[in-house]
Computed example of a mutant assay.
Amino acid sequence: MSRALPKYNKRRVTFIGGAAAVALSGTVIAGFALAGETPDSGATNARTLAGPGTISCPDVTGRLPAVPGSAKAEVDSNLAQLNTQIQEANKRLVDTVGQGGPDFVQNAILGPLEDKRISTVNRIATAIGRTAEKPAGLDSLAACTLTK
């Protein structure tokens, strides 16, 4: 004759199983985090890395026509987003120093940044174009460069 576990025992088993899974995953994560470390033997790192530089992008604000009042909030929001995109790209540049090959910065940082900026400047042009003449040529302001 089999006897079913009371409800509270099932919950306890589930809770204990979940806690064990969390503890195990924490151990795995810690193991991966420590895997790249080497003991300090007093030796210096033979590889030195130059400063990552900074991302430089054309100013969009100065190239905009008069912004209609009805589009001002949307345009301002998108201009702020352009600044945030540059800040995020600069952070990624610092965080990935020494990674990848010779085209890493272009392929992993500058290329995606340009794609984001194209979308953002297009939203700005569309917002203005709803009530005034849509500005042309803003896409040319999307490409950014790395300055060292």
Rank of each mutant, 00 (worst) to 15 (best):
T38A: 10
T27R: 06
V97C: 02
V94E: 11
G18E: 04
P52M: 11
R11W: 03
T27F: 06
E114W: 01
V105K: 00
A143I: 05
E74P: 04
Y8C: 02
A4E: 15
T14Q: 14
E88I: 07
L138M: 11
P52G: 15
E74D: 13
R130D: 12
L93A: 05
M1R: 13
G111D: 14
T61S: 14
L93N: 04
P68C: 06
G51T: 13
G98E: 02
G26S: 05
A80Y: 08
N83L: 11
S41W: 09
A125Y: 03
K72C: 12
N122K: 09
V13K: 13
T54P: 06
R123K: 14
T48V: 11
R47H: 13
V121G: 00
T131P: 03
A66P: 04
A50W: 03
P65L: 03
K91N: 15
A23G: 06
K116W: 00
E133Q: 15
P68I: 02
K116H: 05
A143C: 06
I16A: 06
A125H: 07
N9V: 13
Q85L: 12
G53L: 09
V105I: 13
L113Y: 00
L82P: 01
D40C: 04
G101T: 07
A30S: 04
G17R: 00
Q85D: 15
G69H: 03
N45C: 09
S77D: 14
N45S: 13
N122A: 07
A4W: 11
V75E: 02
Q87A: 15
N45Q: 15
A50Q: 12
E114D: 05
G69V: 07
R92V: 10
K134G: 09
G42E: 00
Q87Y: 11
G42Y: 02
I86Y: 00
L93I: 07
P39I: 09
L138F: 08
P135V: 07
T120N: 10
N83E: 14
E88M: 11
T120S: 10
I55R: 03
T120E: 09
A142I: 00
P39Q: 11
A132T: 06
V67R: 02
T131H: 05
S70Y: 04
N78C: 04
T131C: 05
L138K: 10
V28I: 12
N90L: 10
R63V: 10
Y8G: 01
T96Q: 09
